[in-house]
Design a protein around this nucleic acid. Structure first.
Lengths: 115, 115
DNA sequence: TTGCTATTTGGTAGTATAGCCAAATAGGCA
DNA sequence: TGCCTATTTGGCTATACTACCAAATAGCAA
């Protein structure tokens, strides 16, 4: 990321914070990862269970989980051969409410435009 | 996006919803767009003001705004030559709290690991 | 040890994204 | 009309992401 070179210190700090925040949100902003988050809200799941549910390659699911873990959204726990994942900070579930509100508001506005 | 072909209807619907939700979150998950959202929380701003603050090309800012608008996160209002943008659904500001909590929790855990 | 299962990691191809510049569009004013 | 400013759009390049397959790693059990 590159912003104007003559940026003052305060703004640079502000953007540094936003960059970290964006990285967390980016880790969440993918349908498969949202599925995982939604599923983990009902309790821990192992990689094999999630893979079975989603229906993509295990390696793909593993990489999604790795991204979520790197962002601090999930934590893992090994038990024998299996690795179980859990939500680290369940507040991410609150995102759904606001996102759905955005979708609803937008849809209502668009309906108004054509009626 | 492509998931397992033998997916049942219920799961397909679930993923369809998640895909829409992900598109909203993706629109938010960029430092410059977070800056814009943060800035608009203090009231409407025109493209020129935001460009001046961020220090990138006007066309870049315009495209970021276009993405936010497409996702239903901001709305615009023309006044003479200028176009003013506003938050459409201020609840997106709530995201910051949880994101910061994720960052804080992760940082604390990592500190514990090295101490 | 070997074999089996669960998971992660490396490599690669296709796709998407973000930035800049240049050009097009739109509104205000002489 | 022509000129100036504000914004958007198109084209381009560089970078990042995702999905698959193949190979590597890890743990359990014979």
């Amino acid at each position: 990321m590159k912003w104007g070179g003559d940026m003052d210190e305060k703004l640079k700090e502000r953007f540094a914070r936003l960059e970290i925040r964006a990285s967390i949100l980016k880790a969440i902003a993918h349908p498969t990862r949202l599925f995982i988050i939604d599923e983990l809200s009902n309790g821990e799941r192992c990689v094999c269970e999630l893979t079975e549910m989603i229906g993509v390659d295990t390696s793909t699911v593993s990489k999604h989980l790795s991204k979520l873990k790197g962002a601090g959204i999930v934590v893992d726990r090994k038990e024998g051969l299996k690795v179980f994942y859990n939500l680290a900070t369940p507040c991410v579930l609150n995102f759904f409410d606001c996102v759905d509100k955005v979708i609803k508001t937008t849809a209502e506005e668009r309906l108004k435009l054509i009626s």
